[in-house]
Amino acid sequence: MGQPLTAGTAITVGIIGCGAISAQYLASFRRLPNVRLTAVADLDPSRAQAVADSCDGVRAVTVDELLADPAVGLVVNLTIPAAHADIALQAIAAGKAVYGEKPLAAGTKEAREVLDAATAAGVALGCAPDTVLGTGIQTARKAIDDGLIGTPIAATAVMATPGHELWHPNPDFYYQPGGGPLLDMGPYYVTALVTLLGPVVSVTGTASHTRTKRTIGSGRRAGEVIPVEVDSHVTGTLTHAGGAVSTLMMSFDAVRTKSPNLEIHGERGSLVVPDPNRFDGDVELFALGATQWEVLPVSAGYLDAGRGFGIADLAATLPGTEPRAGGALAFHILDIMESMLESARTGVSVPVHSTAPRPAPVPLRDVSQQETA
């Protein structure tokens, strides 16, 4: 059992955007003693009401009412990517902290406006993914920090799926500006790579798409055809400040892969790292001179974590300290991905001008022991 979170005052939150992902946040909030949900809003009032009906003491309100509510200390922004910056700026203007779904904004220009506004207002800014705070990525990070693979040399990150329209009832935004496999799934992988290997200084990228239309496969819109406005297959390399080079492939065109989601290679060993879209999973080490893979014991990260744990982590962060799932890191991740797409357009390597330090490691922690004031 890990050490408990640092005791702190519970944070009251309101959710804007009650789509599919909100259910995972709601499940986590029920297990997080320092996060208290008080209000929800959505452009579709029926969706907000359905969430409120499922949660004791939670009110369904309009977006304006939620932003004006003094009981809401932090806005959880679960809108579509194109609306991330607008909602974040409105919340910051209302004096509220913000934690948003990834990416931080549809582009770095809008994301910079959000960062600057939060800094000027003196409010905390956090952003998904917080999957890197779970035991999977954090155990791998501890293995690297403890020198089990020696100096990191290279990494591979692979995500292959034929498309989210197969399961998502409203997949339009995945194929609109701000979507695509890199901006949608890339944040999990690139955030994991930066957490494990440090910030990125330059990238190369190539991109393509095989289809101009997609057919929705489930829900009331099943059979409806939607347009594809972004590249749906992106590959490239990331050069980290520490010298390691990562190879990335993110695809909504490929069917399946047997490659590990993440592999990290060092001079003294290699690691297989679990799916960065999950919070847990086995970390495997093949040390130099070994004869087989070894599953490492869980040694770091939030136990039994889920989406929203980054909000609890933010709530326990000292004032003036960057949260582990913070805005500066999210901006750097977006800058890396946007630079990859620029490289794909221009055919040349692109420097990444932003940076962010590796977030502080997460010791093994059990939120069930957390206290609140």
Score class of each variant (00 low, 15 high):
27 A>R: 14
309 F>V: 15
171 P>M: 09
168 H>F: 10
316 A>M: 07
296 L>E: 05
6 T>F: 11
267 E>W: 08
17 G>F: 01
304 D>N: 13
191 T>W: 08
151 T>K: 10
49 Q>R: 12
117 A>F: 00
165 E>A: 09
177 P>D: 10
24 Q>W: 11
335 D>S: 11
253 D>N: 01
12 T>E: 04
53 D>C: 04
164 H>S: 15
51 V>P: 06
344 A>C: 03
244 A>Q: 14
205 G>W: 08
372 T>Q: 02
29 F>N: 06
190 V>I: 07
344 A>D: 06
80 I>L: 13
163 G>H: 02
259 S>N: 13
277 N>K: 10
361 P>N: 00
314 L>F: 01
329 L>P: 10
101 E>V: 08
370 Q>I: 05
143 A>H: 00
124 A>T: 14
244 A>H: 13
186 G>I: 08
7 A>F: 02
131 T>W: 10
183 L>C: 05
47 R>V: 03
94 A>E: 03
351 P>E: 01
166 L>D: 14
272 V>I: 14
132 V>T: 14
219 G>H: 05
363 P>A: 05
45 P>Q: 04
128 A>R: 09
336 I>V: 14
20 A>E: 14
236 G>Y: 13
357 P>E: 14
66 L>D: 02
272 V>C: 07
292 Q>H: 12
28 S>A: 15
13 V>Y: 01
18 C>R: 04
349 S>E: 15
268 R>L: 13
103 P>D: 10
151 T>S: 05
150 G>S: 08
63 V>M: 12
297 P>V: 07
105 A>Y: 01
60 A>G: 08
25 Y>Q: 11
171 P>E: 06
304 D>R: 12
161 T>W: 15
239 T>N: 12
188 Y>K: 10
266 G>N: 05
113 E>R: 15
288 L>D: 13
15 I>Y: 04
218 S>I: 03
341 L>T: 03
146 D>M: 11
303 L>R: 13
244 A>K: 12
279 F>M: 05
233 H>F: 12
259 S>Y: 13
120 A>W: 04
53 D>W: 06
263 E>N: 06
40 V>A: 09
243 G>H: 11
163 G>Y: 04
88 A>Y: 03
216 I>V: 15
38 T>R: 15
171 P>T: 08
38 T>V: 15
118 A>C: 04
193 L>P: 07
311 I>V: 15
197 L>M: 02
105 A>K: 01
274 P>M: 02
320 G>V: 09
210 T>M: 12
222 A>I: 12
293 W>E: 02
332 H>D: 06
47 R>Y: 03
333 I>L: 00
89 L>A: 02
33 P>T: 01
29 F>H: 05
29 F>R: 06
255 V>S: 08
85 A>V: 09
235 T>W: 06
341 L>H: 04
271 L>W: 00
351 P>H: 00
